[in-house]
Simulated scan of single mutants.
Amino acid sequence: MFGKKKPIPQIDKEQLELIENAQKRIKQKKLLYVHFVLFLIGALFLILANTVLGIGEDFKIFEINWFVFAILLWLFFFFYHAFNVFISHKFMGKAWEKQQLEKLVAKQQARIEKLKAGFVKEETLIAQSEVYNESTTKIENLKPNAKKSKLTIIVAAAENDAIGKGNKLIWHLSDDLKRFKSLTNGHHIIMGRKTFESFPKPLPNRTHVVISRQDNYKVPDGVILVHSLKDAIDAAKTDLQPFIIGGGEIYKQAMNLADKIEITRVHENFDADAYFPKIDTSIWKETSNVFHKKDENHDYEFSFLTYERK
């Protein structure tokens, strides 16, 4: 009652039988090997006993030394032993081997069928889960408070929408640069190749996404290279507010995709070779307007304007 429980075998009866018989087969072959070694040593001993020690040197059978008959008799028993191991298959006959093989094949087939049934069940559950997740995602997207990436254009443009000349800024406004840094810090900034080349080096604490049609265009480590604005937006999808920072052609493409525009409007007209698109007030609503006067650090008056899509 209080004794130890007998261990329960983890393998079935047929497999256990196969293992036990295989162990017997190995043991039989080992014994044959030992027999062969003993035969060699014994034969050598008999020869030495007769020729060196002189044991039974006068005893002969048909004028042949007795140890020759002893060795031949022992050799006969050895061959008989070998015959039992390799020919008669005392422990594992051919019929037995075939029977065991058929049992194992049947076992494996049954396990395969069981696994197939399990896979079908698992695939069904996965499919149901994917449908559920897709439905849940759609519902989450319909929720008013669901977080969504908001694509923002940030630009400094003159009254005549001039933004640059010769791939350089036309003005230097300290507060505008500070605002650009403050808004884009920690975010993805999407730009064309020429805009990227206007930087002495990548801007710190921002992920640069550069759009170029050149397949072999080289960018520094950490900079993401893409070949279209769509791919650039996709590359920045983990960012809740990626920024489009130029140039003129990228701004044009982004106007139909952006949710927000942060523009520094410089109250002056300039000669330029790159321009910002006209802001259609039937589509965009001004939500913020902060005016800055000209002073010792700013050669022009300007305003920080925010537009959001209606």
Score class of each variant (00 low, 15 high):
residue 291 F to H: 15
residue 187 H to P: 01
residue 128 Q to Y: 00
residue 4 K to R: 09
residue 201 K to R: 11
residue 234 D to I: 06
residue 40 L to M: 12
residue 131 V to P: 00
residue 116 K to F: 14
residue 202 P to A: 05
residue 83 F to K: 12
residue 96 W to P: 00
residue 74 W to R: 06
residue 199 F to P: 14
residue 70 A to N: 08
residue 242 P to T: 08
residue 59 F to L: 15
residue 49 A to K: 07
residue 65 N to E: 10
residue 196 F to G: 12
residue 136 T to C: 03
residue 191 M to S: 06
residue 228 S to C: 04
residue 296 E to W: 12
residue 95 A to C: 00
residue 200 P to C: 04
residue 101 L to V: 00
residue 61 I to F: 09
residue 178 K to E: 15
residue 202 P to F: 06
residue 144 P to K: 01
residue 143 K to V: 04
residue 45 F to R: 07
residue 221 D to M: 07
residue 243 F to L: 01
residue 222 G to H: 12
residue 85 V to G: 00
residue 278 K to S: 10
residue 68 V to Y: 09
residue 67 F to N: 03
residue 196 F to N: 02
residue 263 I to S: 04
residue 250 I to Y: 08
residue 191 M to C: 12
residue 56 G to T: 04
residue 21 N to C: 00
residue 30 K to Y: 12
residue 203 L to N: 04
residue 35 H to G: 01
residue 147 K to M: 05
residue 180 F to D: 06
residue 101 L to N: 02
residue 143 K to E: 05
residue 87 I to K: 15
residue 215 D to V: 11
residue 299 D to V: 06
residue 250 I to T: 10
residue 50 N to I: 10
residue 231 D to A: 13
residue 8 I to Q: 12
residue 147 K to P: 05
residue 50 N to T: 11
residue 134 E to V: 03
residue 166 G to A: 13
residue 96 W to Q: 09
residue 25 R to S: 11
residue 74 W to Y: 14
residue 203 L to R: 05
residue 282 S to G: 04
residue 30 K to N: 09
residue 123 E to S: 08
residue 156 A to P: 11
residue 236 A to N: 11
residue 172 H to C: 13
residue 224 I to H: 04
residue 143 K to L: 10
residue 294 K to W: 12
residue 105 V to T: 03
residue 24 K to V: 02
residue 122 E to W: 00
residue 34 V to R: 12
residue 86 F to D: 08
residue 284 W to L: 01
residue 238 T to H: 12
residue 99 Q to A: 05
residue 291 F to P: 05
residue 205 N to W: 02
residue 207 T to M: 13
residue 91 F to Y: 08
residue 35 H to P: 02
residue 282 S to R: 14
residue 261 I to C: 07
residue 114 K to N: 06
residue 306 T to S: 13
residue 20 E to K: 13
residue 98 K to E: 02
residue 6 K to M: 06
residue 36 F to L: 10
residue 170 I to D: 10
residue 294 K to Q: 14
residue 178 K to W: 10
residue 47 I to P: 02
residue 33 Y to N: 11
residue 67 F to I: 07
residue 175 D to M: 08
residue 2 F to T: 04
residue 25 R to H: 05
residue 181 K to S: 10
residue 153 I to Q: 07
residue 45 F to W: 08
residue 117 A to F: 06
residue 171 W to M: 11
residue 16 L to G: 01
residue 293 K to S: 14
residue 129 S to C: 01
residue 255 M to K: 04
residue 28 Q to F: 08
residue 103 K to F: 03
residue 226 V to W: 05
residue 308 E to L: 00
residue 101 L to R: 00
residue 248 G to T: 06
residue 62 F to G: 14
residue 240 L to G: 01
residue 129 S to W: 02
residue 280 D to A: 11
residue 86 F to M: 01
residue 208 H to A: 11
residue 76 F to W: 11
residue 254 A to G: 10
residue 72 L to W: 15
